[in-house]
Design a protein around this nucleic acid. Structure first.
Length: 574
DNA sequence: GCCGTTTTCGGCCCGACTGTTTTCAGTCG
Protein backbone atom coordinates (compact mmCIF):
# COMPACT_ATOMS: atom_id res chain seq x y z
CA UNK A 1 0.00 0.00 0.00
CA UNK A 2 1.11 3.51 -0.79
CA UNK A 3 2.60 5.36 2.19
CA UNK A 4 0.61 8.32 3.43
CA UNK A 5 2.28 11.64 4.07
CA UNK A 6 1.96 11.03 7.79
CA UNK A 7 3.71 7.67 7.42
CA UNK A 8 6.62 9.35 5.68
CA UNK A 9 6.75 12.22 8.14
CA UNK A 10 6.96 9.69 10.98
CA UNK A 11 10.31 8.41 9.65
CA UNK A 12 11.79 11.88 10.07
CA UNK A 13 10.19 12.48 13.46
CA UNK A 14 11.77 9.24 14.71
CA UNK A 15 15.08 10.11 13.13
CA UNK A 16 14.98 13.47 14.93
CA UNK A 17 14.01 11.80 18.23
CA UNK A 18 16.87 9.33 18.20
CA UNK A 19 19.46 11.82 16.97
CA UNK A 20 18.40 14.16 19.74
CA UNK A 21 18.91 11.45 22.36
CA UNK A 22 22.34 10.81 20.84
CA UNK A 23 23.14 14.48 21.27
CA UNK A 24 23.42 15.30 17.58
CA UNK A 25 23.62 18.88 16.29
CA UNK A 26 20.31 20.38 17.43
CA UNK A 27 19.88 22.27 14.18
CA UNK A 28 20.20 19.11 12.21
CA UNK A 29 17.52 17.61 14.46
CA UNK A 30 15.35 20.63 13.83
CA UNK A 31 15.84 20.26 10.09
CA UNK A 32 14.34 16.76 10.29
CA UNK A 33 11.44 18.01 12.39
CA UNK A 34 10.78 20.82 9.94
CA UNK A 35 10.79 18.32 7.09
CA UNK A 36 8.33 16.09 8.98
CA UNK A 37 5.99 19.03 9.45
CA UNK A 38 6.23 20.09 5.83
CA UNK A 39 5.44 16.56 4.72
CA UNK A 40 2.46 15.99 6.99
CA UNK A 41 0.75 19.21 5.96
CA UNK A 42 1.38 18.71 2.26
CA UNK A 43 -1.75 18.90 0.12
CA UNK A 44 -0.48 16.31 -2.37
CA UNK A 45 0.49 12.73 -1.68
CA UNK A 46 4.26 12.70 -1.46
CA UNK A 47 4.65 9.18 -2.85
CA UNK A 48 2.90 10.30 -6.00
CA UNK A 49 5.02 13.41 -6.27
CA UNK A 50 8.06 11.16 -6.14
CA UNK A 51 6.60 8.93 -8.84
CA UNK A 52 6.04 12.01 -10.99
CA UNK A 53 9.72 12.95 -10.49
CA UNK A 54 8.67 16.19 -8.83
CA UNK A 55 11.63 18.23 -7.55
CA UNK A 56 11.32 17.66 -3.79
CA UNK A 57 13.92 20.34 -3.07
CA UNK A 58 11.28 22.91 -4.02
CA UNK A 59 9.44 22.07 -0.78
CA UNK A 60 10.29 24.21 2.26
CA UNK A 61 12.86 22.64 4.57
CA UNK A 62 13.71 19.86 2.12
CA UNK A 63 17.16 19.84 0.61
CA UNK A 64 19.37 17.35 -1.14
CA UNK A 65 19.85 14.98 1.80
CA UNK A 66 16.27 14.80 2.94
CA UNK A 67 15.04 14.51 -0.65
CA UNK A 68 17.28 11.47 -1.05
CA UNK A 69 15.87 10.00 2.15
CA UNK A 70 12.32 10.56 0.94
CA UNK A 71 13.17 8.77 -2.27
CA UNK A 72 14.54 5.86 -0.28
CA UNK A 73 11.44 5.68 1.93
CA UNK A 74 9.05 5.78 -1.02
CA UNK A 75 11.05 3.22 -3.01
CA UNK A 76 11.84 0.74 -0.21
CA UNK A 77 9.37 1.54 2.56
CA UNK A 78 12.34 1.92 4.92
CA UNK A 79 15.13 4.28 5.82
CA UNK A 80 18.52 2.68 6.41
CA UNK A 81 19.82 5.60 8.46
CA UNK A 82 16.89 5.22 10.85
CA UNK A 83 17.25 1.43 11.05
CA UNK A 84 20.89 1.90 11.93
CA UNK A 85 19.92 4.18 14.82
CA UNK A 86 17.10 1.93 15.95
CA UNK A 87 19.63 -0.87 16.45
CA UNK A 88 21.14 1.24 19.19
CA UNK A 89 17.91 1.96 21.05
CA UNK A 90 14.92 -0.13 22.12
CA UNK A 91 11.75 0.74 20.21
CA UNK A 92 9.93 1.68 23.42
CA UNK A 93 12.23 4.67 23.80
CA UNK A 94 9.84 6.78 21.70
CA UNK A 95 7.16 6.30 24.37
CA UNK A 96 9.57 7.34 27.12
CA UNK A 97 10.48 10.46 25.18
CA UNK A 98 6.82 11.39 24.78
CA UNK A 99 6.29 11.53 28.53
CA UNK A 100 5.88 15.13 29.73
CA UNK A 101 8.93 16.26 31.65
CA UNK A 102 11.26 13.86 29.87
CA UNK A 103 13.26 15.26 27.00
CA UNK A 104 16.16 13.81 25.06
CA UNK A 105 18.79 14.58 27.68
CA UNK A 106 16.98 12.88 30.50
CA UNK A 107 15.92 9.94 28.35
CA UNK A 108 19.55 9.46 27.43
CA UNK A 109 20.57 9.37 31.10
CA UNK A 110 17.76 6.95 31.95
CA UNK A 111 18.82 4.61 29.17
CA UNK A 112 22.57 4.89 29.71
CA UNK A 113 22.44 4.51 33.50
CA UNK A 114 19.48 2.23 34.10
CA UNK A 115 18.85 0.69 30.68
CA UNK A 116 15.32 2.13 30.61
CA UNK A 117 13.91 1.59 27.15
CA UNK A 118 10.14 1.55 27.60
CA UNK A 119 7.38 2.74 29.91
CA UNK A 120 7.37 -0.50 31.92
CA UNK A 121 11.09 -0.23 32.69
CA UNK A 122 10.56 3.40 33.59
CA UNK A 123 7.70 2.64 35.95
CA UNK A 124 9.62 -0.14 37.71
CA UNK A 125 12.66 2.09 38.20
CA UNK A 126 10.45 4.87 39.56
CA UNK A 127 8.65 2.47 41.92
CA UNK A 128 11.91 1.09 43.29
CA UNK A 129 13.44 4.51 43.89
CA UNK A 130 16.28 4.05 41.41
CA UNK A 131 15.55 7.22 39.50
CA UNK A 132 16.03 9.69 42.31
CA UNK A 133 19.64 8.52 42.62
CA UNK A 134 20.52 9.70 39.12
CA UNK A 135 22.28 13.01 38.57
CA UNK A 136 19.78 15.67 37.54
CA UNK A 137 16.86 13.70 38.96
CA UNK A 138 15.38 13.89 42.43
CA UNK A 139 12.41 12.85 44.53
CA UNK A 140 10.00 15.16 42.74
CA UNK A 141 10.92 14.09 39.25
CA UNK A 142 10.55 10.46 40.29
CA UNK A 143 7.08 11.12 41.69
CA UNK A 144 6.13 13.02 38.58
CA UNK A 145 7.27 10.18 36.36
CA UNK A 146 5.08 7.75 38.27
CA UNK A 147 2.09 10.06 37.96
CA UNK A 148 2.66 10.61 34.25
CA UNK A 149 3.06 6.90 33.49
CA UNK A 150 -0.20 6.25 35.31
CA UNK A 151 -1.92 9.03 33.39
CA UNK A 152 -0.54 7.73 30.11
CA UNK A 153 -1.95 4.28 30.82
CA UNK A 154 -5.37 5.78 31.41
CA UNK A 155 -5.12 7.22 27.93
CA UNK A 156 -4.87 10.99 27.93
CA UNK A 157 -6.54 12.23 24.79
CA UNK A 158 -7.21 15.36 22.85
CA UNK A 159 -10.76 16.65 23.18
CA UNK A 160 -13.06 17.46 20.27
CA UNK A 161 -13.23 21.23 19.89
CA UNK A 162 -16.87 21.46 21.05
CA UNK A 163 -16.07 19.54 24.22
CA UNK A 164 -13.21 21.93 24.94
CA UNK A 165 -15.66 24.78 24.41
CA UNK A 166 -18.06 23.32 26.96
CA UNK A 167 -15.22 23.23 29.48
CA UNK A 168 -13.81 26.64 28.53
CA UNK A 169 -16.99 28.72 28.66
CA UNK A 170 -17.84 28.35 32.36
CA UNK A 171 -14.19 28.78 33.35
CA UNK A 172 -13.89 32.00 31.35
CA UNK A 173 -17.12 33.26 32.91
CA UNK A 174 -15.78 32.42 36.35
CA UNK A 175 -12.54 34.30 35.74
CA UNK A 176 -14.46 37.21 34.27
CA UNK A 177 -16.69 37.49 37.31
CA UNK A 178 -13.70 38.82 39.14
CA UNK A 179 -14.51 42.19 37.61
CA UNK A 180 -10.84 43.18 37.56
CA UNK A 181 -10.12 41.63 34.17
CA UNK A 182 -10.35 44.08 31.29
CA UNK A 183 -8.86 41.64 28.80
CA UNK A 184 -9.44 37.93 28.66
CA UNK A 185 -9.07 35.69 25.64
CA UNK A 186 -8.57 32.09 24.71
CA UNK A 187 -5.51 31.27 22.65
CA UNK A 188 -3.78 28.12 21.42
CA UNK A 189 -5.32 25.43 19.25
CA UNK A 190 -8.73 26.30 20.72
CA UNK A 191 -8.55 29.75 19.13
CA UNK A 192 -7.20 28.27 15.90
CA UNK A 193 -10.31 26.02 15.94
CA UNK A 194 -8.41 22.82 15.50
CA UNK A 195 -10.74 19.82 15.36
CA UNK A 196 -9.31 18.57 18.63
CA UNK A 197 -7.76 20.48 21.50
CA UNK A 198 -5.05 19.09 23.79
CA UNK A 199 -5.15 21.78 26.45
CA UNK A 200 -6.69 25.20 26.88
CA UNK A 201 -4.70 28.45 26.93
CA UNK A 202 -6.27 31.49 28.53
CA UNK A 203 -4.69 34.91 28.42
CA UNK A 204 -5.53 37.89 30.62
CA UNK A 205 -4.14 41.29 31.34
CA UNK A 206 -5.15 42.86 34.62
CA UNK A 207 -3.92 45.10 37.38
CA UNK A 208 -3.93 42.38 40.02
CA UNK A 209 -2.19 39.32 38.54
CA UNK A 210 -1.73 37.63 41.90
CA UNK A 211 -5.45 37.72 42.62
CA UNK A 212 -6.48 36.26 39.28
CA UNK A 213 -3.86 33.52 39.58
CA UNK A 214 -5.23 32.63 42.96
CA UNK A 215 -8.81 32.71 41.74
CA UNK A 216 -7.80 30.46 38.86
CA UNK A 217 -6.11 27.81 40.99
CA UNK A 218 -9.11 27.78 43.34
CA UNK A 219 -11.61 27.12 40.56
CA UNK A 220 -14.10 24.48 41.57
CA UNK A 221 -13.20 22.13 38.72
CA UNK A 222 -9.47 22.03 39.52
CA UNK A 223 -8.09 18.62 40.40
CA UNK A 224 -4.50 19.68 40.96
CA UNK A 225 -2.23 22.61 40.32
CA UNK A 226 0.62 21.67 38.00
CA UNK A 227 2.55 24.92 38.09
CA UNK A 228 2.00 28.38 39.46
CA UNK A 229 4.15 31.43 38.89
CA UNK A 230 3.87 35.18 38.53
CA UNK A 231 2.86 35.11 34.89
CA UNK A 232 1.83 31.55 34.26
CA UNK A 233 -0.15 28.87 36.06
CA UNK A 234 -1.31 25.44 34.93
CA UNK A 235 -4.02 23.30 36.39
CA UNK A 236 -5.46 19.92 35.63
CA UNK A 237 -9.25 19.92 35.79
CA UNK A 238 -11.12 16.91 37.13
CA UNK A 239 -12.25 16.25 33.58
CA UNK A 240 -8.58 15.55 32.78
CA UNK A 241 -8.31 18.75 30.77
CA UNK A 242 -5.25 20.91 31.31
CA UNK A 243 -5.67 24.67 31.38
CA UNK A 244 -2.87 27.24 31.30
CA UNK A 245 -3.50 30.81 32.42
CA UNK A 246 -1.07 33.57 31.54
CA UNK A 247 -1.09 37.11 32.80
CA UNK A 248 0.53 39.71 30.57
CA UNK A 249 0.87 43.51 30.69
CA UNK A 250 -1.86 45.42 28.86
CA UNK A 251 0.56 46.90 26.33
CA UNK A 252 1.77 43.39 25.44
CA UNK A 253 -1.65 41.79 25.15
CA UNK A 254 -1.67 41.63 21.34
CA UNK A 255 1.86 40.26 21.12
CA UNK A 256 1.07 37.67 23.77
CA UNK A 257 -2.21 36.74 22.10
CA UNK A 258 -0.38 36.20 18.84
CA UNK A 259 2.39 34.27 20.51
CA UNK A 260 0.17 31.97 22.55
CA UNK A 261 -2.28 31.39 19.71
CA UNK A 262 0.55 29.80 17.74
CA UNK A 263 0.96 27.48 16.12
CA UNK A 264 4.53 27.08 17.13
CA UNK A 265 5.52 26.64 13.51
CA UNK A 266 3.65 29.82 12.57
CA UNK A 267 5.43 31.74 15.32
CA UNK A 268 8.81 30.57 14.15
CA UNK A 269 7.99 31.65 10.60
CA UNK A 270 6.83 35.08 11.82
CA UNK A 271 9.88 35.57 14.00
CA UNK A 272 12.16 34.58 11.19
CA UNK A 273 10.50 37.17 8.97
CA UNK A 274 10.91 39.68 11.79
CA UNK A 275 14.64 38.96 12.01
CA UNK A 276 15.00 39.49 8.26
CA UNK A 277 13.44 42.89 8.68
CA UNK A 278 15.60 43.75 11.68
CA UNK A 279 12.95 43.24 14.38
CA UNK A 280 12.81 41.01 17.40
CA UNK A 281 9.41 39.46 18.05
CA UNK A 282 8.50 37.89 21.38
CA UNK A 283 5.41 37.62 23.56
CA UNK A 284 5.95 41.16 24.84
CA UNK A 285 6.00 42.91 21.53
CA UNK A 286 7.82 43.81 18.37
CA UNK A 287 11.19 45.42 19.07
CA UNK A 288 13.66 47.43 17.05
CA UNK A 289 16.75 47.14 19.17
CA UNK A 290 15.58 47.96 22.69
CA UNK A 291 12.66 50.01 21.51
CA UNK A 292 9.18 48.50 21.53
CA UNK A 293 7.27 49.37 18.41
CA UNK A 294 4.10 47.30 18.72
CA UNK A 295 2.47 44.92 21.16
CA UNK A 296 -0.94 45.99 22.41
CA UNK A 297 -2.75 44.50 19.40
CA UNK A 298 -2.16 41.65 16.98
CA UNK A 299 -2.89 44.04 14.13
CA UNK A 300 0.12 46.13 15.09
CA UNK A 301 2.48 43.16 15.03
CA UNK A 302 1.37 42.13 11.56
CA UNK A 303 1.37 45.70 10.29
CA UNK A 304 4.96 46.46 11.23
CA UNK A 305 6.08 43.20 9.66
CA UNK A 306 4.43 44.30 6.42
CA UNK A 307 1.78 41.61 6.60
CA UNK A 308 -2.00 41.51 6.30
CA UNK A 309 -3.86 40.27 9.38
CA UNK A 310 -3.84 36.47 9.46
CA UNK A 311 -6.96 34.80 10.82
CA UNK A 312 -6.15 32.37 13.68
CA UNK A 313 -7.49 29.41 11.69
CA UNK A 314 -4.73 29.88 9.10
CA UNK A 315 -1.82 30.03 11.52
CA UNK A 316 -0.19 26.69 10.82
CA UNK A 317 2.77 27.76 8.67
CA UNK A 318 1.14 26.37 5.57
CA UNK A 319 1.95 29.35 3.41
CA UNK A 320 -0.05 31.98 5.30
CA UNK A 321 3.01 34.02 6.27
CA UNK A 322 4.21 34.59 2.72
CA UNK A 323 0.61 35.03 1.55
CA UNK A 324 0.10 37.74 4.17
CA UNK A 325 3.31 39.45 3.08
CA UNK A 326 2.24 39.35 -0.58
CA UNK A 327 -1.31 40.51 0.23
CA UNK A 328 -2.90 37.39 -1.19
CA UNK A 329 -4.53 35.81 1.85
CA UNK A 330 -7.91 34.20 1.17
CA UNK A 331 -11.09 35.98 2.28
CA UNK A 332 -12.32 33.10 4.41
CA UNK A 333 -15.91 31.89 4.25
CA UNK A 334 -18.09 32.97 7.17
CA UNK A 335 -21.40 32.11 8.74
CA UNK A 336 -23.27 34.96 7.06
CA UNK A 337 -22.23 33.65 3.62
CA UNK A 338 -24.26 30.48 4.11
CA UNK A 339 -27.55 30.25 2.21
CA UNK A 340 -28.65 26.80 3.20
CA UNK A 341 -27.86 23.30 4.37
CA UNK A 342 -27.50 20.41 1.93
CA UNK A 343 -27.62 17.40 4.25
CA UNK A 344 -30.41 16.89 6.77
CA UNK A 345 -32.55 13.97 7.95
CA UNK A 346 -36.13 13.83 9.20
CA UNK A 347 -38.13 11.37 11.26
CA UNK A 348 -39.11 9.71 8.00
CA UNK A 349 -35.87 7.74 8.57
CA UNK A 350 -33.51 8.10 11.54
CA UNK A 351 -33.97 11.83 12.22
CA UNK A 352 -35.64 12.93 15.43
CA UNK A 353 -37.46 16.00 14.08
CA UNK A 354 -40.32 16.21 11.61
CA UNK A 355 -40.01 17.64 8.12
CA UNK A 356 -42.05 20.69 9.16
CA UNK A 357 -39.88 21.35 12.20
CA UNK A 358 -36.65 20.98 10.22
CA UNK A 359 -37.89 23.47 7.64
CA UNK A 360 -38.97 25.94 10.31
CA UNK A 361 -35.58 25.63 12.01
CA UNK A 362 -33.70 26.16 8.74
CA UNK A 363 -35.74 29.28 8.03
CA UNK A 364 -35.00 30.52 11.55
CA UNK A 365 -31.29 30.18 10.69
CA UNK A 366 -31.93 32.65 7.87
CA UNK A 367 -31.43 30.03 5.15
CA UNK A 368 -33.05 30.09 1.72
CA UNK A 369 -33.00 26.34 1.23
CA UNK A 370 -32.71 23.05 3.06
CA UNK A 371 -32.05 19.72 1.40
CA UNK A 372 -33.82 16.74 2.90
CA UNK A 373 -31.45 13.83 2.50
CA UNK A 374 -32.86 10.76 4.17
CA UNK A 375 -31.18 7.39 4.07
CA UNK A 376 -31.81 4.89 1.28
CA UNK A 377 -33.17 1.36 1.66
CA UNK A 378 -29.86 -0.46 2.20
CA UNK A 379 -29.32 1.25 5.55
CA UNK A 380 -31.82 -0.86 7.45
CA UNK A 381 -30.77 0.37 10.88
CA UNK A 382 -31.83 3.88 9.90
CA UNK A 383 -35.11 2.66 8.34
CA UNK A 384 -33.85 3.74 4.92
CA UNK A 385 -36.45 4.52 2.27
CA UNK A 386 -37.28 2.30 -0.71
CA UNK A 387 -38.47 3.86 -4.00
CA UNK A 388 -42.08 3.99 -2.82
CA UNK A 389 -41.04 5.64 0.43
CA UNK A 390 -38.98 8.18 -1.47
CA UNK A 391 -41.92 9.07 -3.70
CA UNK A 392 -44.26 9.56 -0.75
CA UNK A 393 -41.74 11.92 0.86
CA UNK A 394 -41.26 13.86 -2.39
CA UNK A 395 -45.01 14.44 -2.63
CA UNK A 396 -45.04 15.78 0.91
CA UNK A 397 -42.16 18.13 0.03
CA UNK A 398 -43.93 19.33 -3.12
CA UNK A 399 -47.00 20.23 -1.08
CA UNK A 400 -44.94 22.12 1.50
CA UNK A 401 -42.93 23.94 -1.16
CA UNK A 402 -46.11 25.18 -2.79
CA UNK A 403 -46.84 27.23 0.32
CA UNK A 404 -43.34 28.49 1.13
CA UNK A 405 -42.41 31.94 -0.11
CA UNK A 406 -38.67 32.68 -0.40
CA UNK A 407 -37.65 29.21 0.69
CA UNK A 408 -37.13 25.91 -1.07
CA UNK A 409 -36.99 22.40 0.33
CA UNK A 410 -34.57 20.63 -1.96
CA UNK A 411 -35.50 17.08 -2.84
CA UNK A 412 -32.58 14.81 -2.20
CA UNK A 413 -31.47 11.54 -0.62
CA UNK A 414 -28.35 10.33 1.13
CA UNK A 415 -27.93 7.33 -1.12
CA UNK A 416 -25.74 4.45 -0.02
CA UNK A 417 -22.80 3.67 -2.25
CA UNK A 418 -22.99 -0.13 -2.41
CA UNK A 419 -19.97 -2.39 -2.31
CA UNK A 420 -19.69 -2.54 -6.10
CA UNK A 421 -19.98 1.22 -6.49
CA UNK A 422 -23.59 1.19 -7.64
CA UNK A 423 -26.12 3.50 -5.97
CA UNK A 424 -28.80 2.15 -3.67
CA UNK A 425 -31.75 3.58 -5.65
CA UNK A 426 -32.62 3.11 -9.34
CA UNK A 427 -31.92 5.94 -11.77
CA UNK A 428 -35.64 6.55 -12.37
CA UNK A 429 -35.99 7.51 -8.70
CA UNK A 430 -32.75 9.52 -8.57
CA UNK A 431 -33.90 11.45 -11.63
CA UNK A 432 -36.80 12.92 -9.65
CA UNK A 433 -34.45 14.44 -7.08
CA UNK A 434 -32.79 17.87 -7.28
CA UNK A 435 -29.46 16.26 -6.44
CA UNK A 436 -27.99 13.43 -4.36
CA UNK A 437 -25.52 12.89 -1.54
CA UNK A 438 -23.71 9.58 -2.02
CA UNK A 439 -22.20 8.01 1.11
CA UNK A 440 -20.33 4.89 2.18
CA UNK A 441 -22.04 3.24 5.14
CA UNK A 442 -20.85 -0.34 4.74
CA UNK A 443 -17.80 -2.43 3.80
CA UNK A 444 -15.40 -0.06 5.50
CA UNK A 445 -12.55 -2.55 5.34
CA UNK A 446 -11.99 -2.80 1.60
CA UNK A 447 -8.43 -2.27 0.39
CA UNK A 448 -7.53 1.30 -0.48
CA UNK A 449 -7.58 0.41 -4.16
CA UNK A 450 -11.04 -1.20 -3.99
CA UNK A 451 -12.54 1.49 -1.77
CA UNK A 452 -11.27 4.24 -4.05
CA UNK A 453 -12.53 2.45 -7.19
CA UNK A 454 -15.89 1.87 -5.52
CA UNK A 455 -16.39 5.57 -4.81
CA UNK A 456 -15.20 6.70 -8.23
CA UNK A 457 -17.60 4.21 -9.87
CA UNK A 458 -20.40 5.75 -7.85
CA UNK A 459 -19.39 9.19 -9.10
CA UNK A 460 -19.65 7.90 -12.66
CA UNK A 461 -23.43 7.83 -12.19
CA UNK A 462 -24.78 11.02 -13.69
CA UNK A 463 -27.15 11.45 -10.75
CA UNK A 464 -24.34 11.46 -8.21
CA UNK A 465 -23.74 14.98 -6.89
CA UNK A 466 -21.99 15.26 -3.50
CA UNK A 467 -19.74 12.73 -1.78
CA UNK A 468 -20.93 12.60 1.84
CA UNK A 469 -18.43 12.38 4.75
CA UNK A 470 -15.65 11.38 2.35
CA UNK A 471 -13.45 9.33 4.70
CA UNK A 472 -15.98 7.99 7.22
CA UNK A 473 -13.73 8.78 10.14
CA UNK A 474 -15.14 9.49 13.59
CA UNK A 475 -12.83 11.65 15.67
CA UNK A 476 -11.32 9.68 18.59
CA UNK A 477 -13.55 6.73 17.70
CA UNK A 478 -12.98 5.33 14.25
CA UNK A 479 -10.19 5.81 11.75
CA UNK A 480 -10.93 6.78 8.17
CA UNK A 481 -11.48 3.89 5.80
CA UNK A 482 -8.55 3.33 3.47
CA UNK A 483 -9.13 5.63 0.53
CA UNK A 484 -7.00 7.66 -1.86
CA UNK A 485 -8.58 11.07 -1.37
CA UNK A 486 -6.43 12.79 -3.92
CA UNK A 487 -7.65 10.43 -6.63
CA UNK A 488 -11.22 10.90 -5.41
CA UNK A 489 -10.88 14.68 -5.56
CA UNK A 490 -9.41 14.53 -9.05
CA UNK A 491 -12.24 12.22 -10.12
CA UNK A 492 -14.77 14.66 -8.67
CA UNK A 493 -13.11 17.50 -10.59
CA UNK A 494 -13.31 15.51 -13.84
CA UNK A 495 -16.98 14.65 -13.32
CA UNK A 496 -18.30 17.90 -11.90
CA UNK A 497 -19.09 16.35 -8.50
CA UNK A 498 -18.72 17.98 -5.11
CA UNK A 499 -17.28 16.93 -1.78
CA UNK A 500 -18.98 17.34 1.54
CA UNK A 501 -17.39 18.81 4.61
CA UNK A 502 -19.58 17.11 7.17
CA UNK A 503 -19.91 19.54 10.08
CA UNK A 504 -20.93 17.01 12.72
CA UNK A 505 -18.47 17.48 15.62
CA UNK A 506 -17.50 13.79 15.59
CA UNK A 507 -16.86 13.83 11.85
CA UNK A 508 -15.55 17.14 10.50
CA UNK A 509 -14.87 15.13 7.42
CA UNK A 510 -13.12 16.50 5.17
CA UNK A 511 -10.25 17.70 7.28
CA UNK A 512 -8.45 21.02 6.77
CA UNK A 513 -5.69 19.67 4.54
CA UNK A 514 -8.11 17.98 2.15
CA UNK A 515 -10.36 21.05 2.03
CA UNK A 516 -7.35 22.92 0.72
CA UNK A 517 -6.58 20.09 -1.67
CA UNK A 518 -10.14 20.23 -3.04
CA UNK A 519 -9.85 23.99 -3.47
CA UNK A 520 -6.49 23.70 -5.21
CA UNK A 521 -7.85 21.03 -7.57
CA UNK A 522 -10.96 23.05 -8.35
CA UNK A 523 -13.59 21.02 -6.49
CA UNK A 524 -16.19 22.93 -4.54
CA UNK A 525 -17.12 21.82 -1.06
CA UNK A 526 -20.58 21.61 0.50
CA UNK A 527 -20.49 22.41 4.22
CA UNK A 528 -23.33 20.31 5.58
CA UNK A 529 -24.52 19.51 9.08
CA UNK A 530 -25.97 16.03 8.52
CA UNK A 531 -28.58 17.23 11.03
CA UNK A 532 -30.70 14.54 12.64
CA UNK A 533 -32.66 17.09 14.67
CA UNK A 534 -33.44 20.80 14.49
CA UNK A 535 -30.71 21.80 16.92
CA UNK A 536 -28.10 19.90 14.90
CA UNK A 537 -28.41 22.60 12.21
CA UNK A 538 -26.22 24.65 14.56
CA UNK A 539 -23.25 22.41 13.77
CA UNK A 540 -22.75 24.62 10.74
CA UNK A 541 -20.36 26.87 12.69
CA UNK A 542 -18.06 23.89 13.32
CA UNK A 543 -17.97 23.05 9.64
CA UNK A 544 -17.24 26.66 8.77
CA UNK A 545 -14.33 26.69 11.24
CA UNK A 546 -12.87 23.62 9.55
CA UNK A 547 -13.44 25.11 6.10
CA UNK A 548 -11.63 28.27 7.15
CA UNK A 549 -8.71 26.17 8.35
CA UNK A 550 -8.74 24.70 4.86
CA UNK A 551 -8.44 28.16 3.25
CA UNK A 552 -11.95 28.01 1.74
CA UNK A 553 -13.52 31.21 0.52
CA UNK A 554 -17.16 31.94 -0.19
CA UNK A 555 -16.84 30.89 -3.82
CA UNK A 556 -15.25 27.56 -2.87
CA UNK A 557 -18.34 26.57 -0.91
CA UNK A 558 -21.38 25.24 -2.75
CA UNK A 559 -24.05 26.28 -0.27
CA UNK A 560 -23.11 29.94 -0.28
CA UNK A 561 -24.89 30.08 -3.64
CA UNK A 562 -28.29 31.65 -4.10
CA UNK A 563 -31.10 29.20 -4.75
CA UNK A 564 -31.10 30.03 -8.44
CA UNK A 565 -27.34 29.64 -8.88
CA UNK A 566 -27.32 26.47 -6.83
CA UNK A 567 -30.06 24.81 -8.87
CA UNK A 568 -28.23 25.71 -12.04
CA UNK A 569 -24.99 24.15 -10.75
CA UNK A 570 -26.78 21.02 -9.57
CA UNK A 571 -28.39 20.47 -12.97
CA UNK A 572 -25.18 20.60 -15.00
CA UNK A 573 -24.48 16.86 -14.97
CA UNK A 574 -28.00 15.76 -15.86
C1' DG B 1 20.52 19.50 7.48
C1' DC B 2 18.64 23.79 5.34
C1' DC B 3 19.00 28.33 3.53
C1' DG B 4 20.09 33.28 1.25
C1' DT B 5 16.34 41.29 -0.45
C1' DT B 6 23.56 42.02 3.64
C1' DT B 7 25.19 35.66 3.34
C1' DT B 8 27.25 29.57 -0.64
C1' DC B 9 29.26 30.15 5.30
C1' DG B 10 27.44 30.89 9.48
C1' DG B 11 23.62 31.30 11.28
C1' DC B 12 19.23 28.72 12.74
C1' DC B 13 12.82 31.74 17.89
C1' DC B 14 12.75 32.80 22.59
C1' DG B 15 11.22 33.36 27.38
C1' DA B 16 9.06 31.07 31.79
C1' DC B 17 9.04 27.58 35.09
C1' DT B 18 10.82 23.55 37.59
C1' DG B 19 13.89 20.90 40.01
C1' DT B 20 18.16 20.24 41.29
C1' DT B 21 21.25 22.90 42.11
C1' DT B 22 24.28 26.74 44.73
C1' DT B 23 24.22 29.38 39.49
C1' DC B 24 21.81 26.66 35.85
C1' DA B 25 20.33 22.82 32.62
C1' DG B 26 16.39 20.80 30.85
C1' DT B 27 11.84 21.03 29.24
C1' DC B 28 7.91 23.20 27.41
C1' DG B 29 5.02 25.86 24.54
Amino acid sequence: MKLTNNDIAEFFTRLADLLEIEGANPFRVRAYRNAARTISSLARNLSELVEEAFDLKALPGIGKEIAAKINEIVADGRLSKLEELEKRFPTGIYQVLKLPGLGPKKVKVLYAELGIGNLDDLNKAAESGEIRKLAGFGKKSEERIRAEVKQRRQGKERYPWVVAEQIARPLIDYLNNDGAVPNIATAGSFRRKRETVGDLDILVSCATPRRIMERFTKYDGVDRVLASGETRSSVLLRSGFQVDLRVVPQDSFGAALHYFTGSQAHNIAVRRLGLQKGFKVNEYGLFKGEKKIAGDSEDGIFKFLGMDYIEPELREDRGEVSAARDKRLPALVKQTDMRGDLHAHTDDTDGRSSLDDMVAAARAEGYRYLAITNHSQHLRIARGLDPAGVRRLLEKIDQLNANLPDFVILKSMEVDILKDGSLDLPDEVLRELDFTVGSVHSNFRLSQEDQTERIIRAMDNRYFTILGHPTGRLINQRAAYAVDLERIIRAAADRGCYLELNAHPDRLDLDDIHCKMAKDLGVRVAISTDAHSTDNLRYMRLGIAQARRGWLEKDDVLNTRSTKELLKLLQIRR
